[in-house]
Design a protein around this nucleic acid. Structure first.
Length: 496
RNA sequence: GGCGCGGUAGCCAAGUGGUAAGGCGGAGGUCUGCAAAACCUCUAUUCAUCGGUUCAAAUCCGAUCCGCGCCUCCA
């Protein structure tokens, strides 16, 4: 599997530092508000990466941090008049709800910053001891960029050529160098009750230190992969490298991956611009998490994605086509009396399941036992699907493989050239694709008895060639939101 | 000013030297009592513009135009 490394600006083969396990740190949300779809673009990119890594046979440990102490969370808690942890708890919980809605697989660890203050203090102390950090007059601790010669290597910035701009805050006059960044912020009135005691004084951690400290605790001083949005490259990730490598004396991360921004109407979407949609906004307009996931996933992660409601509508159509195809496969398999259990051997159901090793193995076994049954076009799709993923998550190629397969499969079924066992094998292949895509599972639709009765009524009317009655019943069902789909195999109901 | 990304059909989007994937939309067709749904077929002689290299360029080189991001706490 090849991935684009921000550090080297090149495609590189992903090779874990230790054994078969990929250790990955993904920058998570600051829990001061509902996350917006731009945030979720990043989390879905990370989810796709995670699932692809697993598909290629690696084991994986993923950490996603929750930033629950910073200027914004403190300000939010103050405004709401509640303690910090009460304030952030709401948004932590909302975040996990949203992950479920988007069928994002849970990471192995979700450390919150406020639960790891001692680890941060330890790392800062080590940096002070090694003279990589200093205390300013107000008591804050700063990292000295001058003490880390390769500063700027990730963002490819030449610090010597950088000029102090107007954005440098007035209150940063205490720093030795404008590029120096806070490891620890001395307590300030605005912080209210939010403070911890450190050997050098009371205060709270700076932003970057939490990621370094928690990554080290859960993944070690050196690990494989670190991801985030492009806007994190500088200064956040650059600073993480500086402080982590200065503290440990070891290389911090081997591969860095960053996803491009999502834009709305061609403009950067950000909380500060206020032109953002939360997942809840999308849902309230009648779109589903599944459709949203499709849109956010379907573009290459290093390409900026222009979000639109038209794209959601297009995703709905594409997903319906995939659903039809699956239903059709099941129909063909059933006609050949392929056992239901074979058809159901499949993927992670729902967002909570960890496709554990067991599930994977059984999945692979099924795929193996079925692979001999796969028609050539399906096997070609499998090869192309994997080739796309292995090429720096070229999801477009993988999706093209999927749709090629749908097309070829429909043609084969039109020609009655697909045997029941083959249909079941193709269905299994789809299920294995969905271990990565997470969008193929059709939400189960319970059809109420009333609707089924009406459908029967219509069938009787049609048998009797009573077209007026048949059409009346059809209209009645339509009024209830049901579409009748007359197929050679009989009439089916479908939600409009 | 520095660094970086991008401009491919109505829309979205792959393709980094060998003659334009895929999705949505649209147009025809099949099926059907009629419809709908579904499926099938078709839908870019051309890749921002202009030059150059090459047997061969969307792909390489140069120039130009346009859009976007980062350059201190925003995924």
């Amino acid at each position: 599997m090849k991935i684009h490394n921000t550090l080297t600006q090149q495609l590189e083969e992903l090779i874990p530092l230790e054994g078969n396990r990929v250790r990955i740190y993904t920058c998570g949300p600051t829990v001061y508000n509902f996350a917006h779809i731009g945030n979720f673009r990043a989390y879905i990119f990370e989810d796709l990466l995670r699932r692809a890594i697993k598909r290629f046979g690696y084991e994986l440990t993923q950490v996603m941090n929750l930033t629950d102490v910073d200027d914004k969370t403190i300000a939010g808690a103050l405004k709401a008049g509640v303690p910090l942890n009460t304030f952030t708890a709401t948004f932590k919980s909302a975040f996990f709800d949203d992950l479920k809605t988007l069928n994002i697989e849970p990471a192995e660890h979700y450390p919150a910053a406020t639960d790891h203050i001692p680890a941060m203090i330890g790392m800062i102390q080590s940096l002070l001891d090694k003279k990589h950090a200093y205390q300013s007059d107000d008591g804050s601790i700063y990292f000295s960029v001058a003490s880390f010669p390769s500063y700027g290597k990730l963002a490819h910035l030449d610090m010597a050529g950088m000029r102090p701009g107007a954005r440098v805050q007035h209150d940063e006059y205490e720093k030795e160098n404008v590029a120096d960044f806070a490891l620890w912020k001395a307590w300030d009135e605005k912080d209210g009750a939010v403070a911890w005691d450190a050997p050098w004084g009371r205060g709270r951690p700076g932003w970057h230190i939490e990621c370094s400290a928690m990554a080290t605790q859960y993944l070690g001083e050196s690990f494989d992969l670190h991801t985030g949005g492009v806007d994190n490259i500088f200064p956040h990730h650059e600073d993480e490298i500086a402080q982590s490598e200065s503290a440990s004396g070891k290389p911090y991360v081997r591969y860095w991956m960053h996803c491009a921004h999502l834009v709305v109407d061609g403009r950067k979407m950000s909380k500060s611009l206020g032109n953002f949609y939360t997942l809840r906004d999308i849902l309230s307009r009648g779109f589903t998490g599944r459709e949203t996931r499709y849109v956010l996933m379907a573009g290459h992660y290093r390409q900026s994605l222009n979000f639109s409601f038209d794209a959601l509508t297009a995703a709905r159509s594409a997903l319906q086509r995939l659903d039809e195809f699956q239903d059709r496969l099941v129909g063909v398999a059933k006609n050949a009396n392929i056992e239901q259990s074979t058809l159901n051997v499949q993927h992670s159901t729902g967002s909570n399941s960890h496709p554990s090793l067991d599930v994977r193995c059984s999945m692979l076994t099924v795929e193996c036992s079925n692979s001999l049954l796969l028609p050539d076009w399906a096997d070609a799709a499998r090869v192309k699907f994997d080739a796309g993923l292995a090429d720096d998550l070229n999801i477009s190629e993988s999706l093209a493989a999927l749709f090629d397969m749908v097309h070829a499969g429909n043609r084969a079924m039109d020609a009655k050239a697909l045997k029941g066992e083959q249909a079941a094998a193709v269905r299994s292949l789809l299920a294995s694709f969905d271990l990565v895509l997470g969008v193929l599972e059709k939400p189960r639709e319970e059809i109420p008895d009333g609707a089924l009765k009406l459908l029967e009524l219509r069938q009787e009317a049609r048998k009797a060639k009573n077209w007026a009655e048949s059409d009346r019943v059809r209209d009645e069902l339509a009024a209830q939101g049901w579409l009748i789909q007359d197929t050679p195999q009989g009439a089916k109901l479908k939600r409009k």
